[in-house]
Design a protein around this nucleic acid. Sequence first.
DNA 1: CCTCATACCTCGGCATCTTAGGTATCACGA
DNA 2: TCGTGATACCTAAGATGCCGAGGTATGAGG
Lengths: 109, 109
Amino acid sequence: MKGHLDLVLLGVLSRGAGHGYQVITRLREQTGGALDLPEGSVYPALHRLEDLGLLTSEWHPVAGRRRRVYSVTAEGRAALNAQRRDWRALVQAVESVLEPGRRVGAVSS
Amino acid sequence: MKGHLDLVLLGVLSRGAGHGYQVITRLREQTGGALDLPEGSVYPALHRLEDLGLLTSEWHPVAGRRRRVYSVTAEGRAALNAQRRDWRALVQAVESVLEPGRRVGAVSS
DNA sequence: CCTCATACCTCGGCATCTTAGGTATCACGA
DNA sequence: TCGTGATACCTAAGATGCCGAGGTATGAGG
């Protein structure tokens, strides 16, 4: 995860609000364990994204515990779209290097 | 290009030996300008890969100029395969986050 | 009680990449 | 002939960005 953290965080939260710990478990489950991000990466990233205005958070007290639930803002959705475009362009570029001559189309359609 | 430099360098050199400047132009042309790496990224990376034993180099004097031509070693090919696997796994994981419910298969087959 | 899972946080370190500058040859045109 | 752009190499210092390690706290289960 180098340079793609924001993308996956915005991506997973765009599917529904959630708190930090949940983001981690969601990613782990949705990817079959391929993406198992450490808390030390996720929490600071969420704070940064909130500072940038791409996320908002609310505290929810739940059974004596407190949870900070994050939602993607309109700006966040725009940023997600932009980063998704960049990601796809990167994938295409790298694939065209790894498999020259093979036309790697969009991921699906 | 954060964390994927080695992959693309090994990838492009695995298609044929070449010198540093040529690596840059090849990548720029093969990707339609999408990958335009600065020299300050490429040269140190090539040196690092050579130190790791993944590349070997030879000086070729050409028309008054000198070129350092790099080739991928056997170890380099093995590393390329490993990094390619990791790359594909990353792509799959990220795509499964961006497009949940859609089964994104291997990039080709 | 003690441990595990839940749930949050921060600091320091590390690896990596980029910026910015430097050297040198050759070809071309003014 | 002199400047400029392309070719071709290099490095040092800085910024970036992630991770590991550590810390706090509650609730459940043994």
